[in-house]
Simulated assay, not measured.
Amino acid sequence: MQGERLLEGLGVSVPDELLRVALSHSSYANESGGVSNERLEFLGDAVLNLALAEFLYRRFPERDEGELSKIRAVVVSRPVLAQVARRLGLGEHLLLGRGEELAGGRERPSILAAALEALFGAVFLSHGYEEARGLAERLLGPEARRYAAERSPDYKSLLQELGQRRYGALPAYEVVQSEGPEHKKVFTVSVELGGSRAVGRGRSKKEAEQAAAKRLYLDLEEKLDG
């Protein structure tokens, strides 16, 4: 059955028919006359948000609700969910229509993130909230702890991973300008990857590189989703 190896690696079980739905993109469902994973995605999104809210509430008793909401928003964002899905090899198990397959759908961030949410929905229906919560903590707990410290994704790492995976190359950074007195200097950094370029500014080179990496990463992800 499609996805059995994936489930074995996660240490969970889902009935074959439900797993098939979780892995079925709408393009495949339209061609085959089956059911897409969109309803499971809707359910999984709610389960995942609740599971992470509980995890963050228990893990960070010193944080207020505003901080916890920001951390959760980052962890359930499309870039992070797609990154986790790629680490699991989820893309190779997807059921896609012919057109979506040819268009590179197995690497499309929106499809990967949606399929991961659908998988959480399937686990919830099969075993209940506790099993789904445990899976959420195993897969996304490390991301939550990391982003709780950083407050935002490490876009330099995300861009580097995208470059190696998609282009077989690393991003190239260059300081193009620094202005202002030493104690209030502002840096402008450019980054290039895959024929695309973006610019970011910051109070340090590191901050400017992160800003540039964020712009380019989101631009490239949007192109992949286009």
Rank of each mutant, 00 (worst) to 15 (best):
M1W: 07
Q2L: 14
Q2R: 15
R5P: 00
L6F: 13
E8T: 11
E8L: 13
V12L: 03
S13G: 10
S13T: 13
R20I: 03
R20F: 08
S24Q: 09
H25Q: 02
S27C: 06
Y28K: 02
A29W: 01
S32Y: 00
S32F: 02
S32L: 06
S36I: 10
L40S: 00
E41Y: 10
E41F: 11
G44K: 03
V47K: 06
V47H: 01
V47T: 09
L48W: 07
N49Y: 12
N49V: 14
N49L: 11
L50A: 13
F55N: 12
F55R: 06
F55E: 02
Y57Q: 15
Y57T: 15
R59K: 15
P61S: 09
P61K: 03
D64G: 06
D64Y: 07
K70H: 06
K70V: 00
I71L: 15
A73L: 11
V76Y: 02
V80Y: 08
V80M: 11
Q83A: 09
Q83R: 14
V84M: 09
V84A: 11
R86E: 13
R87T: 03
R87E: 05
L88S: 01
G89E: 00
L90M: 05
G91F: 13
L94R: 05
L96Y: 07
G97T: 01
R98Q: 10
R98E: 15
G99M: 03
L102S: 08
L102Y: 09
G104C: 04
G105P: 07
R106I: 06
R106P: 12
P109H: 11
A114E: 03
A114F: 05
E117L: 12
E117D: 09
L119M: 06
F120L: 04
F120Q: 00
F124Y: 14
L125F: 07
S126L: 10
G128H: 09
Y129G: 10
E131Y: 08
E131Q: 14
L135F: 05
A136W: 12
E137H: 11
R138P: 04
L139A: 04
L139P: 07
L140I: 10
L140T: 04
G141E: 04
G141P: 04
P142M: 07
E143T: 03
R146L: 15
R146N: 06
R146W: 12
A148H: 01
A149K: 13
A149V: 04
E150L: 14
S152I: 04
K156V: 14
Q164R: 15
Q164S: 04
R165G: 08
R166M: 14
Y167K: 01
G168R: 02
P171K: 11
A172I: 13
E174D: 06
V175H: 06
Q177I: 05
E179Y: 14
P181I: 12
P181T: 12
P181G: 11
E182N: 07
F187A: 05
F187P: 01
F187V: 03
F187L: 00
S190W: 03
S190Y: 00
V191M: 09
V191E: 00
E192Q: 09
E192K: 14
G194A: 01
G195H: 05
R197A: 02
A198N: 01
A198W: 07
R201I: 12
G202L: 14
G202S: 12
G202D: 08
R203H: 10
K206R: 14
Q210R: 15
A212S: 05
L216A: 08
L216H: 09
Y217K: 02
Y217N: 10
L218T: 08
D219C: 05
L220W: 09
L220E: 07
K223N: 01
L224R: 11
D225S: 14
